[in-house]
Amino acid sequence: MINKIIETPKEAVADIFDGATIMISGFGEAGSPIELIHALIDQGAKDLTIISNNAGSGHVGLAALLENKRVKKIICSYPKTAFSEVFPNLYCNGEIELELVPQGTLAERIRCGGAGIPAFYTPTSVGTPLAKDKEIREINGKLYVLEYDLKADFALVKAYKGDRYGNLIYYKTARNFGPIMCMAAKTTIAQVNKIVELGDIDPEIVVTPNIFVQRVVEVANPLHEHVLISQNKKYPWTE
């Protein structure tokens, strides 16, 4: 019997090890698996490399993972968002390494990581500082930059519904990086608002095929980052 359902976020992240590379879904707070991130903070793994579009806001979720000094390097496209204080402070103090990647290149590097394509040429960033020291090649009269794939030991992804095989569907623009991160990690851990029976998700509308998902954990009422920020919350929770 195949059953990828795990009871709690704590159990779902228990084997994440020091030095792991972890993809974390989300575009800002939309699609950010905040309960899995908080469970990872509780678990204690450190020296992590994080691949995520942003670098967190306020003092919860991804920002809290950074603030608790668990992350040595972040690979992202836009670490500067409203209410982001943690990353700028760490970066200015030289306490975190940043690899800045154009957003589409980040997405394609992740997609390729999951699709068995080790590298690709893209026009994005030609003639800019982000192409510095990279291989440039002319193809049919146009210049392209060589970019390599991205893979991860784990992906922490937020989806809307999942079943025990690991089929996933998402909710609105919270889909963003989820589907491609599921493909690019050895172990994909999906938190879903609702676990449903096999067959309840119409096979025609499955977004992430179950083969890309190893663990599914239900978080029925996930926290909202903007609400926590408006309440000045900080994780681990303090009184």
């Binding site: 496209s77 836009y78 670490p79 800045l100 154009p102 957003q103 290149t105 893209t122 994005t124 800019t128």
Partner: peptide, 14 residues
Amino acid sequence: DIPAVGGAMDLVQG
């Protein structure tokens, strides 16, 4: 300046 690029470099190329 905190470097941040987002999708701009992809948009202008494509």
